[in-house]
Amino acid sequence: MSGLNIKNSEYVHETPNQNPPPSGRKKKNNSLLRLLNSKKVAPYIFVFPFILSFSILTLYPTIQAFIMSFQRILPGQVEFIGLQNYERIFNQTFYKALANSTMFMLLTVIILVTIPIILAILLDSNLVKSKTFFRSALFIPALTSIVVAGVIFRLVFSESDQAIANQIIGFFGFDPVRWQFTAWSGMFLMVGMAAWRWMGVNVLYFLAGLQSIPKELYESAEMDGANLFHKFRHVTLPFLQPIIIFVTTISIIGGFRVFEESYVIWQGNSPGNIGLTLVGLLYQEGIQQNDMGFGAAIGVVLLILIFFVSMIYLLVTGAFKRGDE
């Protein structure tokens, strides 16, 4: 993330010293106004709403989430129970949710990184006509809300043998599948929904990355006798690497956060918990069962999980290393 030049002092003007405040009763009012309007004070007024909302809506709840995870919270009665919530977490249901969320994360990362790269490279080449149309077509699913996506997927993958999905596999000679009732097909529906909605956005990220590659590099590679694969391996991939890391990281985080894809198919009651995710479990325990302390503990575990997995990924790919090797 080298673009986030935090200091970036060349853009900033030096603040000249303010004039000494004039005295006198009438001028006092005037000087307050002048103070409010000075270059020293104005930025704080601009950022004040952010500081306020950050403290109330992010900082406080984050700390509170950790505190709540050590509490038993009943209406009008809160007591500290130490690690009891955490001791209760690790049971069969939790492992099921963990397995589902992890599987969803792995599949979406694989699908939503590799396929968009291929699509973007093809779209960026001069092989494709009407690029704008194809780009827009891929992008439009990102505009649909998750509920509408759920309506569509439920009706396309209905268990009836008249529904499109079963008609298609029936055409190839397979028996109809009860898509929403078996573990593998349930996962397929959730991953399919996410892939359908986010494919176009990821293609855009990679297209932006591809457009920054100087064309001369390909020409000189060609002169050195490089074939298509060599060009991909030694020119395209190195240039795309920062974007690949970025897209993979947000897909890891987003993958572990999966909830809505599951909710719109099963409303939180999937047969044999085939669609139960970590956030789904948090919702079930914290909101529906009103056991907020236990729910908060699940949230903390989720946060730690996301943090470690994305850190490990970033360390392995060397994203923290500065400069070129």
Binding site: V12, T62, R257
Partner: peptide, 28 residues
């Protein structure tokens, strides 16, 4: 556009919030 005390820390907190998953804040 302004240079002021605390600018870096405010900008860093913006980046941190982007990375905190909303779900952890859900119950609080």
């Amino acid at each position: 556009v302004y240079k002021f005390k605390g600018r870096t820390i405010i900008f860093l907190s913006v980046l941190i919030i982007i990375m905190i998953p909303f779900e952890i804040l859900l119950l609080p």
